[in-house]
């Protein structure tokens, strides 16, 4: 009979109308600035630079290798390599970025810079409320704005941060083992004497 489907549809909307007053499932919007949905742990928005320790300039992990600059698909990263060197977390002398800019207006949050970085120094932040009134420089983030402590990384992505720390610790241990082995080899060469075998690299 004509009108059956229409009445069925009307019953459906009526159910949703009255259901919205009693059931969470039928009123799914979150009134945004007042209430927020929790972010998933994997959420990625824009990149930031990780630093260890307290001094953001000294502890910056980035060594200005410029791989991310080359790999960035929309080419929003701009790096100028330093003339001098400073020690990194392993104590090795490394270059550092004299300038490290990311134009967040161009960045498309693809995370490729994070994946290609061999030094665990660039990671994805979860901050997204970045609107600014300055349309020319407001979203061009400089090194200082980008640098955030490792603790911040641990706070937003605990699992990834732990994995990243483990990688770095392993690198460091390998490096130390190598240095020790080198030192021992040197010592052995200088004065051959029986010593205990070096501990295996972890």
């Amino acid at each position: 009979m004509l009108g059956k489907g229409i009445i069925k549809g009307l019953a459906e909307t009526a159910r949703n109308f009255f259901g919205s007053f009693v059931s969470e499932r039928r009123l799914t919007t979150v009134p945004y600035p007042d209430a927020r949905q929790p972010l998933a742990e994997n959420t990625r928005q824009f990149p930031f630079l990780v630093y260890d320790g307290d001094d953001w300039e000294q502890g910056l992990r980035c060594v200005a290798c410029q791989i991310c600059e080359k790999e960035c698909p929309p080419q929003c990263i701009y790096i100028v390599k330093s003339k001098d060197k400073k020690p990194d977390y392993k104590g090795q002398m490394q270059f550092y970025p004299a300038v490290f800019d990311i134009d967040l207006a161009v960045c498309m949050s693809c995370q490729i810079c994070v994946e290609v970085c061999p030094f665990e120094s660039i990671k994805m932040d979860t901050e997204f409320e970045l609107s600014t009134a300055d349309r020319f420089g407001g979203l061009l983030f400089h090194k200082k704005q980008l640098a955030k402590p490792n603790a911040h990384y641990h706070r937003i992505h605990p699992t990834d941060a732990a994995a990243s720390d483990a990688v770095l610790a392993a690198e460091k241990a390998k490096q130390e083992a190598k240095a020790r082995a080198a030192a021992e080899a040197k010592a052995k060469a200088a004065a051959p004497a029986p010593v205990a075998p070096p501990p295996s690299a972890s």
């Binding site: 799914t28 972010l39 998933a40 742990e41 994997n42 959420t43 990625r44 949050s109 693809c110 995370q111």
Partner: peptide, 30 residues
């Protein structure tokens, strides 16, 4: 939205997932 929540939990982004890589996937299921 529920499906996009799943995508966000898995890939980090709701729409621009950028998840698959040549020879597999970028990360494992959380």
């Amino acid at each position: 939205e529920k499906i996009l929540d799943l995508f966000e939990a898995l890939t980090g982004a709701r729409m621009m997932c950028n998840y698959m890589r040549f020879g597999g996937c970028r990360c494992d299921l959380p």
